[in-house]
């Protein structure tokens, strides 16, 4: 096994099971729709809240869908083979999470302008929203990967995983929505984007190692 052959196999696997990604995106759409339906469909409410709504929907759909990231490989024994392959497990994890991030975030970034329009988000905020999604979501996926590894051996682990991981998403959501609010009030938002980038970078360093520790403890 090489890193390249693992990357190819991951892309193929994800392409074959594209329904997973489609489900996650549909879940994202549904959560967004809940807000105008459940609270208030008027532009007065939605325009200032749009950034937050999209971010909450994105975070929820990431945490719910990433839960099964390692489930199948755990069941069919390929996860064990990754551990004993002699390759560095954190790098393999990074590849896996990276492929999944690309597969889910590209369509989500394309969907976002549509929903920003439907939620009456001012157009100058849209670019900032897209920037926060681009910078912040790697953190969501990386932290989520730890949770997925923690609960991989559990049959009913989804609820526990959400309970464990969602609190770690709070800072990312807070800084992202703060950046969107900042542009709406005409305030500088660069610092908040930098903080987001810092969190994602921290997750990039910490998460693969933590995930590999959990996986090693789980496959025994």
């Amino acid at each position: 096994m090489t890193y390249l052959s693992f990357f190819k196999a991951e892309c193929l696997t994800l392409f074959r099971s594209k329904q997973r990604v489609v489900n996650a995106l549909l879940f994202f759409v549904l959560v967004v729709v809940l807000f105008p339906l459940g609270i208030d469909p008027s532009a007065d409410f939605l325009a200032p809240a749009a950034g937050g709504i999209i971010w909450c929907a994105a975070a929820l759909s990431v945490v719910v869908s990433i839960e099964s990231l390692y489930k199948e490989s755990y069941a069919d024994g390929t996860l064990t083979q990754l551990v004993v392959s002699g390759l560095s497990l954190p790098w393999l994890i990074l590849i896996k999470v990276g492929v999944y991030w690309l597969a889910m975030m590209l369509p989500l970034l394309l969907l976002t302008p549509v929903f920003a329009q439907m939620l009456f988000l001012p157009s100058d905020s849209l670019l900032v929203l897209l920037a926060t999604l681009l910078i912040g979501t790697p953190g969501l996926f990386l932290i989520g990967s730890i949770g997925a590894a923690l609960t991989v051996s559990l049959k009913q682990g989804a609820m526990l995983m959400v309970l464990l991981i969602l609190p770690f998403y709070f800072p990312i959501i807070i800084f992202s929505t703060a950046a969107i609010k900042a542009i709406q009030f005409g305030l500088p938002y660069g610092g908040l984007l930098a903080l987001l980038a810092a969190i994602s970078l921290l997750a990039l360093v910490v998460a693969p190692v933590m995930t590999s520790l959990c996986i090693k403890a789980s496959v025994r």
Partner: peptide, 19 residues
């Protein structure tokens, strides 16, 4: 467990292990 990926074909599985 066989350690093979169910979504991939036989050939793809082998290519994964032995590129």
């Amino acid at each position: 467990s066989a350690g093979l990926n169910g979504a991939l074909t036989v050939m793809e599985n082998i290519r994964w292990y032995l590129p």
